[in-house]
Simulated assay, not measured.
Amino acid sequence: MTHYAIVTDLNRCVGCLACSVACKAVNDVDAGNFWNKTLRIGPNKKTDSYDAIDMDMYYLTVQCQHCKDPECVKVCPTEASHIAEDGTVQIDKSKCIGCQFCAMSCPYGVRYLNQEERVVEKCTLCEQKTAQGELPQCVSQCTGIARYFGDLDKGIDGFRGACNTTLKDKVEPYTDADLHHLRNVGNDPSFVYILRRMEWQGEE
Protein backbone atom coordinates (compact mmCIF):
# COMPACT_ATOMS: atom_id res chain seq x y z
CA MET A 1 0.00 0.00 0.00
CA THR A 2 1.00 3.61 -0.54
CA HIS A 3 -0.28 6.79 1.06
CA TYR A 4 1.50 9.96 -0.02
CA ALA A 5 1.42 12.92 2.35
CA ILE A 6 3.34 15.98 3.52
CA VAL A 7 4.95 16.61 6.89
CA THR A 8 5.57 20.25 7.82
CA ASP A 9 7.98 21.31 10.56
CA LEU A 10 6.23 24.44 11.85
CA ASN A 11 9.26 25.43 13.90
CA ARG A 12 11.19 25.80 10.63
CA CYS A 13 8.47 27.54 8.58
CA VAL A 14 9.21 31.27 8.18
CA GLY A 15 5.90 32.21 6.54
CA CYS A 16 7.56 33.28 3.28
CA LEU A 17 4.59 32.03 1.17
CA ALA A 18 6.95 30.39 -1.34
CA CYS A 19 4.83 27.22 -1.15
CA SER A 20 1.65 29.12 -2.03
CA VAL A 21 3.27 31.03 -4.89
CA ALA A 22 5.00 27.94 -6.32
CA CYS A 23 1.74 25.98 -6.17
CA LYS A 24 -0.22 28.64 -8.06
CA ALA A 25 2.48 28.90 -10.73
CA VAL A 26 2.97 25.21 -11.50
CA ASN A 27 -0.73 24.29 -11.29
CA ASP A 28 -2.08 27.40 -13.05
CA VAL A 29 -4.40 28.23 -10.16
CA ASP A 30 -6.60 31.16 -11.13
CA ALA A 31 -6.48 34.54 -9.40
CA GLY A 32 -8.32 34.72 -6.09
CA ASN A 33 -8.02 31.01 -5.34
CA PHE A 34 -5.35 28.95 -3.60
CA TRP A 35 -4.59 25.27 -3.28
CA ASN A 36 -2.25 26.03 -0.40
CA LYS A 37 -2.76 28.79 2.19
CA THR A 38 -0.40 29.94 4.94
CA LEU A 39 -2.03 31.15 8.14
CA ARG A 40 -0.37 33.05 10.98
CA ILE A 41 -1.15 31.56 14.40
CA GLY A 42 -0.62 34.15 17.11
CA PRO A 43 1.03 36.01 18.56
CA ASN A 44 -0.21 34.38 21.76
CA LYS A 45 1.14 34.91 25.25
CA LYS A 46 3.25 32.00 26.42
CA THR A 47 1.38 30.02 29.04
CA ASP A 48 4.50 29.41 31.15
CA SER A 49 5.71 33.04 31.18
CA TYR A 50 4.84 36.02 33.37
CA ASP A 51 6.27 38.50 30.87
CA ALA A 52 3.44 40.29 29.04
CA ILE A 53 5.48 40.59 25.86
CA ASP A 54 6.74 37.00 25.82
CA MET A 55 4.81 35.62 22.84
CA ASP A 56 4.61 32.54 20.64
CA MET A 57 3.80 32.64 16.93
CA TYR A 58 4.03 30.18 14.08
CA TYR A 59 2.78 29.72 10.52
CA LEU A 60 0.39 26.94 9.55
CA THR A 61 0.02 25.79 5.96
CA VAL A 62 -3.45 24.50 5.10
CA GLN A 63 -4.42 22.57 1.96
CA CYS A 64 -6.20 19.36 1.06
CA GLN A 65 -5.16 16.85 3.72
CA HIS A 66 -5.61 13.85 1.39
CA CYS A 67 -7.59 12.15 4.14
CA LYS A 68 -7.70 8.41 4.70
CA ASP A 69 -11.51 8.44 4.96
CA PRO A 70 -12.45 11.64 3.08
CA GLU A 71 -15.91 13.15 3.44
CA CYS A 72 -15.63 14.66 -0.05
CA VAL A 73 -15.44 11.20 -1.61
CA LYS A 74 -18.44 9.94 0.36
CA VAL A 75 -20.77 12.71 -0.83
CA CYS A 76 -19.70 12.88 -4.49
CA PRO A 77 -22.68 11.68 -6.60
CA THR A 78 -20.60 10.85 -9.69
CA GLU A 79 -17.44 9.38 -8.10
CA ALA A 80 -15.44 12.26 -9.56
CA SER A 81 -13.79 12.64 -6.15
CA HIS A 82 -11.94 9.42 -5.45
CA ILE A 83 -8.95 7.92 -3.68
CA ALA A 84 -6.14 7.15 -6.11
CA GLU A 85 -3.76 4.19 -5.91
CA ASP A 86 -1.13 6.37 -4.20
CA GLY A 87 -3.58 7.18 -1.38
CA THR A 88 -4.20 10.76 -2.48
CA VAL A 89 -7.65 12.24 -3.04
CA GLN A 90 -8.13 13.31 -6.67
CA ILE A 91 -10.89 14.78 -8.85
CA ASP A 92 -11.77 13.35 -12.24
CA LYS A 93 -12.87 16.52 -14.03
CA SER A 94 -14.61 14.53 -16.76
CA LYS A 95 -17.04 13.22 -14.11
CA CYS A 96 -17.40 16.38 -12.03
CA ILE A 97 -20.76 18.13 -12.46
CA GLY A 98 -19.89 21.13 -10.29
CA CYS A 99 -22.49 20.37 -7.61
CA GLN A 100 -19.99 21.39 -4.90
CA PHE A 101 -21.21 18.79 -2.39
CA CYS A 102 -17.56 17.93 -1.83
CA ALA A 103 -16.62 21.55 -1.14
CA MET A 104 -19.44 21.85 1.39
CA SER A 105 -18.41 18.65 3.17
CA CYS A 106 -14.70 19.46 3.42
CA PRO A 107 -13.89 20.44 7.03
CA TYR A 108 -10.93 22.57 5.89
CA GLY A 109 -12.56 24.70 3.18
CA VAL A 110 -9.87 23.90 0.65
CA ARG A 111 -12.05 23.10 -2.39
CA TYR A 112 -13.61 25.64 -4.71
CA LEU A 113 -15.53 25.82 -7.97
CA ASN A 114 -13.53 26.82 -11.03
CA GLN A 115 -16.00 29.30 -12.49
CA GLU A 116 -14.67 28.97 -16.03
CA GLU A 117 -14.57 25.17 -16.25
CA ARG A 118 -17.48 24.65 -13.79
CA VAL A 119 -15.63 21.89 -11.97
CA VAL A 120 -14.25 21.70 -8.45
CA GLU A 121 -10.51 22.05 -7.91
CA LYS A 122 -8.06 21.57 -5.04
CA CYS A 123 -4.51 20.43 -4.26
CA THR A 124 -3.57 17.33 -6.26
CA LEU A 125 -0.28 16.93 -4.40
CA CYS A 126 1.25 17.65 -7.81
CA GLU A 127 0.39 14.18 -9.10
CA GLN A 128 1.94 15.14 -12.45
CA LYS A 129 5.29 15.48 -10.66
CA THR A 130 5.10 12.79 -7.97
CA ALA A 131 4.20 10.17 -10.59
CA GLN A 132 7.63 10.88 -12.10
CA GLY A 133 9.41 10.54 -8.76
CA GLU A 134 9.63 14.28 -8.18
CA LEU A 135 8.57 16.30 -5.14
CA PRO A 136 5.40 18.38 -5.03
CA GLN A 137 6.21 21.96 -6.00
CA CYS A 138 5.38 23.34 -2.54
CA VAL A 139 7.96 20.96 -1.05
CA SER A 140 10.75 21.50 -3.57
CA GLN A 141 10.40 25.30 -3.34
CA CYS A 142 10.19 25.55 0.47
CA THR A 143 12.88 28.09 1.39
CA GLY A 144 12.94 27.07 5.05
CA ILE A 145 13.19 23.37 4.14
CA ALA A 146 10.21 22.89 6.43
CA ARG A 147 8.11 20.67 4.15
CA TYR A 148 8.74 16.99 3.42
CA PHE A 149 7.01 14.49 1.15
CA GLY A 150 6.76 10.73 1.31
CA ASP A 151 4.77 7.57 1.92
CA LEU A 152 3.12 7.40 5.35
CA ASP A 153 3.18 3.62 5.22
CA LYS A 154 7.01 3.75 5.28
CA GLY A 155 7.25 6.18 8.22
CA ILE A 156 7.92 9.91 8.17
CA ASP A 157 11.66 9.83 8.98
CA GLY A 158 12.42 9.06 5.32
CA PHE A 159 10.25 11.85 3.90
CA ARG A 160 12.20 13.98 1.40
CA GLY A 161 12.52 17.75 1.31
CA ALA A 162 14.24 20.42 -0.76
CA CYS A 163 17.99 20.23 -1.41
CA ASN A 164 17.93 16.40 -1.31
CA THR A 165 17.32 16.34 2.45
CA THR A 166 15.37 13.88 4.58
CA LEU A 167 13.23 14.77 7.54
CA LYS A 168 15.25 12.65 9.96
CA ASP A 169 18.56 14.22 8.94
CA LYS A 170 17.40 17.85 8.71
CA VAL A 171 14.93 18.69 11.47
CA GLU A 172 15.62 18.87 15.19
CA PRO A 173 14.48 15.91 17.28
CA TYR A 174 10.77 15.57 18.00
CA THR A 175 8.55 13.31 20.09
CA ASP A 176 5.15 11.79 19.40
CA ALA A 177 3.66 14.63 21.47
CA ASP A 178 5.05 17.10 18.89
CA LEU A 179 3.13 15.47 16.00
CA HIS A 180 -0.24 16.98 15.14
CA HIS A 181 -3.06 16.84 12.58
CA LEU A 182 -5.77 19.27 11.59
CA ARG A 183 -9.20 18.73 13.15
CA ASN A 184 -10.43 15.18 12.67
CA VAL A 185 -14.18 14.80 12.13
CA GLY A 186 -13.95 11.14 11.24
CA ASN A 187 -12.07 11.78 7.99
CA ASP A 188 -8.57 10.99 9.35
CA PRO A 189 -6.45 13.78 7.80
CA SER A 190 -3.11 12.45 6.55
CA PHE A 191 -0.83 15.47 6.68
CA VAL A 192 1.39 15.74 9.76
CA TYR A 193 2.54 18.94 11.48
CA ILE A 194 5.52 19.03 13.84
CA LEU A 195 5.36 21.72 16.53
CA ARG A 196 7.65 21.86 19.54
CA ARG A 197 7.51 24.07 22.65
CA MET A 198 4.35 25.92 21.53
CA GLU A 199 0.64 25.33 21.90
CA TRP A 200 -0.93 23.54 18.95
CA GLN A 201 -4.04 25.36 17.71
CA GLY A 202 -4.60 23.60 14.40
CA GLU A 203 -7.77 21.85 15.55
CA GLU A 204 -9.63 25.08 16.30
Results as ranks from 00 to 15, higher is better:
residue 18 A to R: 08
residue 126 C to G: 07
residue 57 M to G: 08
residue 112 Y to H: 06
residue 202 G to K: 09
residue 151 D to L: 01
residue 159 F to K: 05
residue 126 C to F: 07
residue 104 M to W: 13
residue 165 T to H: 07
residue 94 S to G: 05
residue 149 F to S: 00
residue 56 D to M: 03
residue 146 A to K: 06
residue 164 N to C: 13
residue 26 V to M: 11
residue 46 K to F: 05
residue 132 Q to P: 11
residue 41 I to G: 08
residue 39 L to P: 12
residue 83 I to L: 01
residue 27 N to Q: 08
residue 105 S to E: 09
residue 129 K to C: 13
residue 59 Y to H: 05
residue 18 A to T: 14
residue 28 D to F: 02
residue 5 A to I: 00
residue 104 M to E: 14
residue 29 V to P: 00
residue 64 C to H: 05
residue 99 C to Y: 01
residue 100 Q to W: 04
residue 11 N to L: 03
residue 61 T to H: 08
residue 55 M to L: 12
residue 98 G to W: 00
residue 116 E to Y: 02
residue 130 T to K: 14
residue 165 T to F: 01
residue 160 R to F: 03
residue 31 A to N: 15
residue 30 D to E: 12
residue 162 A to C: 07
residue 50 Y to M: 14
residue 127 E to Y: 14
residue 82 H to E: 04
residue 17 L to P: 05
residue 28 D to L: 04
residue 101 F to V: 07
residue 163 C to N: 15
residue 51 D to P: 05
residue 191 F to G: 10
residue 81 S to M: 11
residue 10 L to D: 00
residue 122 K to S: 10
residue 77 P to T: 02
residue 85 E to G: 08
residue 202 G to Q: 04
residue 46 K to H: 10
residue 203 E to S: 09
residue 19 C to T: 04
residue 152 L to E: 03
residue 11 N to R: 04
residue 174 Y to Q: 10
residue 148 Y to Q: 06
residue 144 G to V: 14
residue 108 Y to P: 03
residue 124 T to Q: 07
residue 146 A to P: 05
residue 152 L to P: 01
residue 134 E to R: 15
residue 22 A to M: 03
residue 123 C to L: 06
residue 152 L to N: 02
residue 78 T to S: 08
residue 163 C to I: 15
residue 32 G to P: 02
residue 184 N to C: 06
residue 187 N to I: 03
residue 189 P to W: 04
residue 147 R to T: 07
residue 6 I to W: 01
residue 185 V to T: 15
residue 141 Q to F: 13
residue 174 Y to S: 09
residue 185 V to D: 14
residue 92 D to M: 02
residue 102 C to L: 04
residue 101 F to N: 12
residue 93 K to W: 01
residue 31 A to H: 13
residue 156 I to W: 06
residue 157 D to G: 03
residue 53 I to W: 14
residue 133 G to R: 13
residue 36 N to S: 12
residue 167 L to V: 08
residue 92 D to S: 03
residue 29 V to K: 02
residue 125 L to H: 12
residue 204 E to T: 12
residue 145 I to R: 15
residue 114 N to I: 00
residue 88 T to I: 02
residue 122 K to M: 09
residue 21 V to E: 04
residue 92 D to A: 03
residue 44 N to D: 13
residue 110 V to C: 06
residue 181 H to E: 05
residue 66 H to W: 05
residue 164 N to R: 15
residue 128 Q to H: 15
residue 86 D to S: 01
residue 98 G to M: 00
residue 1 M to R: 09
residue 83 I to N: 00
residue 41 I to W: 12
residue 128 Q to V: 15
residue 87 G to N: 02
residue 114 N to G: 01
residue 193 Y to E: 03
residue 115 Q to G: 10
residue 25 A to E: 13
residue 10 L to P: 02
residue 83 I to T: 09
residue 30 D to H: 03
residue 196 R to F: 00
residue 158 G to M: 06
residue 100 Q to L: 08
residue 52 A to H: 10
residue 130 T to D: 11
residue 190 S to H: 07
residue 132 Q to V: 13
residue 4 Y to R: 11
residue 61 T to Q: 11
residue 84 A to V: 05
residue 202 G to C: 05
residue 1 M to Q: 09
residue 17 L to M: 12
residue 72 C to E: 00
residue 178 D to K: 09
residue 103 A to C: 04
residue 154 K to H: 08
residue 174 Y to P: 07
residue 66 H to V: 07
residue 77 P to A: 01
